[in-house]
Write a protein that binds this DNA or RNA. Structure first.
Lengths: 148, 148
DNA sequence: TATTGTTATACTCTATAACTATA
DNA sequence: TATAGTTATAGAGTATAACAATA
């Protein structure tokens, strides 16, 4: 019988992804500090698209946290003048969030900085970058995920 | 002149990695809850290897946070009986951390659960898993990083 | 003097439970 | 009754500054 010392490629890939993301945590923390935003504030800001509307509840779902939590995060973004909160016309229980012009500016800057790949990826030969991208496209392709 | 609508493969790969990790945040939070550990406590526990010693300062560096912070994290792990803290013999300023038997048990269980790849990766065809793993190996190979 | 870890302080993130105002 | 969001509360993570013990 064959001896199997090899671990599953998916297991090793997942471990390596974790390592890569961990190694880049200091950069992300520094980035948030430069924008004078706490990590979750930055995350929330990125989930509100320019010109679009987002209800508090939808934001809570996207952030994977309790609605009671979102109140504070939104409070802080609002008092910094980055977002606005107003009641929805058709159901006055829900609060609609929109970016202010300053919010759009900060969000664009944040996105520009965050999408810069870490040196470990940027230094890879072009063909390895392409192989990595193509494999990740297949993993995150919505058409592949389990049905509704 | 050629029009370039394509973004750099490394940029897209980095974005996809973020998406993958974000999508798996709820699973990681649930995992920590099942072990009755806060996220940073889990992270810290994983950084102390069985049979090895780790100074508080080294742990602070690995966690990318301030030493004053580590005091509280270690306090909570110690009061749960997962780690021990004692003065180093040769320099009594430094505190040495070691796992208790219970700490080793919880850490092993945590590692087993955390290394399970998310469904998005596990469901990939074997050859795509291998391509992904090989590209990530090249990215995280210590031999490739900028010199000392 | 310099370094390791702690304490004091203040702020952010986190969830649970009780509350409000709508529906 | 049920739902969206808030408030109250408590605990955990975060950094800065001042401190104790040791080197």
């Amino acid at each position: 019988m064959a001896v199997r010392h090899e671990i599953e490629p998916a297991v090793e890939a997942w471990t390596l992804i974790w390592r890569l993301v961990q190694a880049n945590r200091p950069r992300m923390v520094r980035l948030a500090q430069e924008l004078d935003l706490a990590p979750m504030q930055l995350h929330a800001l990125r989930l509100i698209e320019p010109g679009a509307e987002l209800a508090m509840g939808a934001l809570a779902q996207s952030l994977f946290c309790d609605p009671s939590n979102v109140t504070g995060i939104v409070d802080r973004l609002e008092s910094r003048g980055l977002i606005e909160r107003r009641g929805a016309a058709r159901d006055r229980r829900v609060k609609i969030l929109t970016l202010t012009p300053e919010g759009e500016r900060v969000r664009a800057e944040a996105s520009r900085l965050m999408e810069q790949p870490p040196p470990e990826l940027a230094a890879l030969p072009a063909e390895v970058q392409v192989a990595l991208r193509d494999a990740l496209r297949k993993a995150t392709d919505p058409g592949r995920s389990p049905g509704p």
